[in-house]
Amino acid sequence: MNFKLKVWRQKNAVSPGSFKDYDAKDIPSEASFLEMLDIVNESLTGNSEDPIEFDSDCREGICGMCSLVINGIPHGPGKGTTCQVYMRRFTDGDTIWIEPFRAAAFSPIKDLVVDRSAFDRIIQAGGYIVVRTGSAPEANSLPVPKHNADLAMEAAACIGCGACVAACPNSSAMLFVAAKVSHLGLLPQGQAERETRAIHMVREMDELGFGNCRNYYECEAICPAEISATFIARLNRDYAAASAQEALTV
């Protein structure tokens, strides 16, 4: 298969970027999108050109490292991560636009690679529980209702790839923060810090320059872990309750 690529090239965070045209020739239909870029990069390095920089790691749809916005859709067409997109999804001769995740809070590094460490800082602000380490306690001593266990598991499926931010027209990180706040807030171990967690994570998110949720649900539509936007409603009420408690506590 042959494709015309329009790829965002940017030397570093400060220099302006632009789209450059590339021809992807003789691509096997069973190649993944990232493998297609590998093939293009092979020919670029053969011609002593700078290869296209992009993020990837496990290439099994698990780790959340790959990014890319393909034809305006974070992670490209279909559910799942970029590494799970195969070239057979496209038609021979297609023009494909490839861009990095765009958000003020995700600053560019090079080409299609952006700095997503803002998510790490949100986790550092409260996405954990403070427990004494040691041997695992007896599981049955801490009962968890089945419904809560299922919901918590669903929220914990978030791989923190940042596609929700990339898809959101306002670069809001609400789906990510909602998933992280909910998966701990639904379990007994997370109750002690439930209020402070919601407050600290939301404020860290705001301080980092993520936008505000306007209920577009673009995030839910593209999330490779299929996190439901109803977790955002849960975060909204957790945050409001925590703020009320903060205001009333002397």
């Binding site: 306002n170 809001s172 539509a221």
Partner: peptide
């Protein structure tokens, strides 16, 4: 704040879910 948070739009708009009313 939203405008500042998304300084650059995508070359190809790829809306999946949002309604025109919402946007």
């Amino acid at each position: 704040e939203n405008r500042l948070a998304k300084p650059q739009k995508y070359a190809v708009p790829g809306y999946q879910r949002s309604s025109t009313a919402a946007r």
